[in-house]
Simulated assay, not measured.
Amino acid sequence: MSTLLPCKIIDNQPLHYVDKGDGPALIFCHGLLANSQIWQVQIAALSAHYRCIAIDFWGHGQSQTIPKACENLQDVAQQILSLMDMLEIKNSVLIGHGSGGAIATEMVLLAPARIHGLVMLNSFVGFEPQVNCIKYQGYMAQIANQQAISTELATTLSEMFFTKNAGKLSHQDSTLAIEMSLFTEQLTQVNPAQIAPLLKFANMAIFKRDTLESVEALTLPTLIAVGLQGHLRTALESYLMHDCIDGSQLLHIEHAGHLANIEKSDFFNQHLVDFLSKVNFN
């Protein structure tokens, strides 16, 4: 049984999070269908020098509810800023994965003085392409109909989160096989009580607003990382964000998909440590 994470009551609902280490604050924001566990390797590498906060967003992990008034990712961003207040964190660097990168960007737009650096891994802040919306809605409909994430669907989703041909490659790569098995198990552990909150969050993430033009005004240090063998995000989307955010860095991660921070953790951590060393937290 996993350890119960601490939580804060935000808009009358418990939001759970990991809080490990001391020093300047890093806030880790996972994407849709993931949870704070995806950041374990990064937290292990960074918590000796930084205070690492990894959130379980609404409907994910141990945060199994969602506030009634939470209607979009801007609302979620404001709630995480409230969490920062409760944890007495004046400023931080945000590290976002997938839709967590969109939430992190909304936080920067809401409170630019409080965010001193931004990392986006396999994220996109523009409108979700229509073909993706239709595909993702299909998966969410399966979850809604079954009131669970079946092993079959979890296996399909897990293969999408890792490098292309991960299913075949895992037969020769035991580490990849273990990583995929753990993620599949995590998906199947979603309980019926959190299905409705998860689906509400999914709808907000899939139909997020377009902030590509807004991010042109960002001036903070930004690292945009993309796994080049992913199913869910394209390198072109990262190029677009890189072009929009003046002075941003673009990192290609070879032989990795959506969860590149897990598949190529050493490579990603190396570049993350280098990026953070150049951020002024004062």
Rank of each mutant, 00 (worst) to 15 (best):
S2F: 05
T3V: 10
C7P: 00
I10G: 02
H16A: 02
Y17L: 01
Y17C: 00
V18K: 12
D19S: 15
D19C: 02
G21L: 08
A25S: 08
I27V: 15
C29G: 04
A34D: 03
S36M: 01
W39K: 12
V41H: 09
Q42N: 05
I43K: 03
A45E: 06
S47Y: 00
C52L: 03
A54H: 01
W58V: 04
W58P: 03
G59S: 08
K68Y: 07
A69S: 11
E71C: 11
E71G: 13
E71W: 09
L73R: 06
Q78P: 01
E88M: 04
I89V: 09
N91Q: 14
I95Y: 04
G96C: 10
H97K: 03
G98M: 02
G98N: 12
A102L: 03
A102Q: 08
L109S: 11
L109W: 07
P112M: 06
R114F: 14
I115H: 06
H116E: 14
G117A: 13
G117D: 13
L118Y: 05
V119A: 12
L121E: 14
L121M: 14
F127L: 15
E128L: 14
P129N: 09
N132C: 04
I134N: 12
K135L: 15
Y139K: 04
M140V: 09
I143D: 02
A144E: 14
A148T: 05
A148Y: 00
T155S: 11
M160P: 00
M160C: 10
M160D: 06
F161C: 15
F162E: 09
T163M: 13
T163F: 10
T163P: 07
A166V: 14
A166K: 15
G167K: 12
G167P: 03
L169A: 11
H171D: 12
A177D: 11
M180R: 15
M180D: 15
S181K: 13
S181C: 04
E185D: 11
L187H: 09
Q189W: 01
N191K: 13
P192M: 07
A196L: 08
L198Q: 08
L198W: 05
L199C: 02
K200N: 08
A205W: 07
F207V: 02
F207W: 05
D210W: 01
E213T: 09
S214P: 04
S214G: 05
A217R: 10
P221R: 02
P221E: 04
P221M: 07
T222F: 07
Q229D: 10
G230K: 01
L232F: 10
L232E: 08
L236T: 11
Y239D: 13
M241K: 08
H242T: 06
D243V: 10
D243K: 14
D246V: 14
E254M: 12
H255D: 14
H258F: 13
A260N: 09
S265E: 11
Q270V: 08
Q270F: 15
L276F: 11
N280R: 09
F281C: 04
N282S: 15
